[in-house]
């Protein structure tokens, strides 16, 4: 499990770098094109989408690296056993959030209905007024659902990383080994 989690995290690091480069590049492109009076309509919104992707890919990576802000004010002074128990509970909560997101994304993308409607997007929409495949960005001339794909990706990888964390911490608790340290922001 940890091996899959590591492999996915490597992928996420690459994707995150690309997204951040896109954010910077697109904003600069907007500055340049506007200064030569040739504003590209879609650039701002594209930069925002790159940021949204960076946010959710990064958030999943943070789960993998156990690197997120938490209030450890009350748990830090606890004896080891209780602290470990709290860690396992937190792992389980993160996993619960991941599973919640998977379920919500499953409902949202609603593949069974899409298949039942023979991939006809208009028919799909009229069945349940779920606008996911009809939604369009304001200026980027593409459907919006490909941009939404970051949400199920985030849901799945978060679930994966959280499962790996939970299994690892449970094993450590049973064997009495030291827990993997939470990583701090490495800035």
């Amino acid at each position: 499990m940890r091996r899959i989690s590591l492999a996915v995290a490597a992928l996420e690091k690459g994707a995150l770098v690309i997204c951040m480069a896109l954010v910077l590049g697109l904003v600069l492109l907007n500055v340049v094109t506007r200064s030569i009076n040739y504003s590209l309509f879609w650039v701002d919104e594209a930069a925002v989408f790159a940021m949204v992707w960076a946010c959710f890919i990064g958030a999943s990576l943070l789960v993998h690296q156990r690197m997120d802000f938490a209030v450890t004010l009350l748990t830090d002074p606890l004896p080891d056993r209780l602290r470990h128990a709290a860690r396992v509970v937190v792992d389980a909560l993160v996993l619960g959030f991941g599973v919640l997101m998977v379920v919500l994304c499953w409902w949202w993308f609603d593949l069974p209905t899409l298949v039942a409607q023979n991939w006809n997007l208009q028919a799909f929409f009229e069945v349940n007024y779920n606008g996911i495949y009809m939604d369009r960005p304001t200026t980027v001339n593409l459907p919006k659902w490909p941009f939404f794909l970051v949400m199920p990706w985030f849901a799945l990888t978060t679930t994966l990383h959280a499962t790996a964390n939970l299994l690892e911490d449970l094993a450590a608790m049973r064997s009495g080994e030291a827990f993997a340290e939470r990583q701090e922001a490495e800035v």
Binding site: K13, L16, V17, C19, M20, A21, L24, M51, V52, A54, C55, F56, I57, G58, A59, L61, L62, Q65, M67, D68, F69, A185, E186, V187
Partner: peptide, 13 residues
């Protein structure tokens, strides 16, 4: 970019 991205993700998430 990776370091900036992770810190941005902390806040944006």
């Amino acid at each position: 970019l990776l370091a900036a991205g992770r810190n941005a993700a902390v806040v944006l998430f």
